[in-house]
Simulated assay, not measured.
Amino acid sequence: MLTTEQKLLCALAHLGVFVGIPIIAPIIALLVSNDNFVKMQAKEALGFQIMLIAAGIISGILVIVLIGIPLLLVIGIVTVVFPIIAIVKVIDGVDYSYPISGSIIRKM
């Protein structure tokens, strides 16, 4: 069973996208906690947020040739939906892994 502090730190790591500190929030959770569950969730959130930034840059470049506009829409939806799912799962005590970046991050 997760403690309130663990749930709060995990939620903070995943909420970084919404509060304007997307990469800093998971790093703070990584540095503050000694718990393996919290560290794994913070790594997942950090990897996901770095992936979103890279995808946004690539889509931004592709907007010049009008291919990137649909990609930006998909990235926007993914940026909102997946962190909300992660927060709900972590608060329920489930070890959540993002669909695309999760398997890569867990191997590191």
Rank of each mutant, 00 (worst) to 15 (best):
L30G: 10
D95I: 10
I85F: 10
I27N: 12
Y96T: 04
V88F: 14
V78W: 03
V74A: 08
Y98H: 01
I100F: 15
F48H: 15
Y98P: 00
A86H: 03
G76T: 08
V19Y: 08
P22D: 15
I57D: 05
G76L: 05
V32K: 11
F48N: 14
V65K: 10
A25V: 02
V80F: 11
Y98E: 00
I21R: 08
G93T: 11
I85P: 08
A54M: 14
D35L: 07
I50E: 03
I24Q: 02
I61K: 03
A25N: 03
P26G: 01
I53A: 09
I27L: 08
I91K: 06
V63M: 12
V94M: 11
G47H: 02
K89M: 15
V90C: 11
P22Q: 15
A54P: 15
S59Q: 05
K43A: 00
V32I: 04
I61R: 04
I21S: 08
Q41Y: 00
P70A: 04
V90F: 12
I23T: 08
G68V: 04
Q41P: 02
V65L: 13
E44S: 03
M40F: 12
G68E: 04
L30Y: 00
A25F: 01
P99M: 01
I75P: 00
V38N: 07
L52I: 09
A86F: 12
T79L: 13
L31W: 09
L31R: 05
L52D: 07
T79K: 14
S33L: 13
M51F: 15
V81D: 13
D92R: 09
F48Q: 09
T79D: 04
V90H: 14
I91L: 05
V78Q: 14
A54T: 12
P70T: 02
I58R: 06
V19T: 07
V74W: 03
L30D: 10
G60C: 07
G60M: 04
L52A: 11
V32P: 00
Y98N: 00
Y96Q: 00
L73R: 06
G93K: 15
I77D: 07
G60R: 00
D95S: 12
F48S: 14
K43W: 09
Q49W: 04
S33H: 06
G93V: 01
I58D: 10
